[in-house]
Design a binder for these strands. Structure first.
Lengths: 128, 128
DNA sequence: CCAATAATTCGAGAATCATTGAAATATGGA
DNA sequence: TCCATATTTCAATGATTCTCGAATTATTGG
């Protein structure tokens, strides 16, 4: 990934309203949410939100699709994944101080069933 | 982690010079690098760099220690790890689109020896 | 076609941020 | 103590960025 792209994405989420939008859309999943719905959730003006959605879109972190009168925004998982990969590149200059925690993140995510209220099918994954 | 902290850290690395400093220090590892050495590496003025190092410090991403005439900056792995955890929180709103890639990151990191030009002693680590 | 809803674009003003030269502080050695 | 090295602080300037009101575009239903 190019530095330019990474910076674009980082600055996109380095702002309170946009970080909230981002997190909201991460939670919302692939189905996404309409712009108006997002605005209501975060109590931010429609036109302000529009500008912020554009920043996130231009960074490639979210994607818009029209559905009737609404425009639905949804997270782009690949973009986020690429950014995380970029940030952790060369993290092992010989040592594992950073890598070890990464494994923890992966393990915590989707395996700890703390938030598994929505019964994920969970194709048997080997533990630990 | 508080949103404020996350934003502080994200904005800290959402800028070209600082992102380069950050990546350089990630590579450098716990021993860190002197401010002057960083400046030479990135060909940026000492005073400009100083301001940027302060931003990264205030964000908690790096830490300074004096050593003789030099001031050595080193990455703070914990801060970075916490940020990554924060960014991936709630990423599993039921689906694994984002989580699966995370595991890949962890696996790629420290296991793929693609960038192992600096012959890490490699205390026998199981492959793959 | 007209009105209502959903969202975006435009322009301006305020606020924040990055960079620079000049001056200041801290350390180590002669 | 005096000087050179290493780095930071300060103040100013220019560049970005954020937000907001007003106007605009797109879509649906009557």
């Amino acid at each position: 990934m190019e530095m330019d792209t990474a910076i674009k994405r980082l600055s996109a989420i380095a702002q309170d309203a946009r970080l909230e939008v981002f997190r909201l859309l991460v939670k919302a999943g692939p189905d996404g949410m309409a712009a108006g719905e997002i605005a209501r959730n975060l109590s931010v003006a429609a036109n302000t939100l529009s500008a912020q959605l554009l920043v996130l879109s231009n960074a490639g972190l979210i994607r818009a699709r029209r559905e009737g009168r609404s425009i639905i925004y949804a997270i782009q998982y690949d973009a986020m994944r690429d950014l995380l990969v970029f940030l952790t590149e060369d993290c092992c200059g010989g040592r594992a101080e950073m890598c070890a925690p990464l494994a923890t993140i992966a393990a915590r995510c989707c395996s700890t069933s703390e938030g598994a209220a929505h019964e994920a099918p969970a194709r048997s994954r080997r533990r630990r």
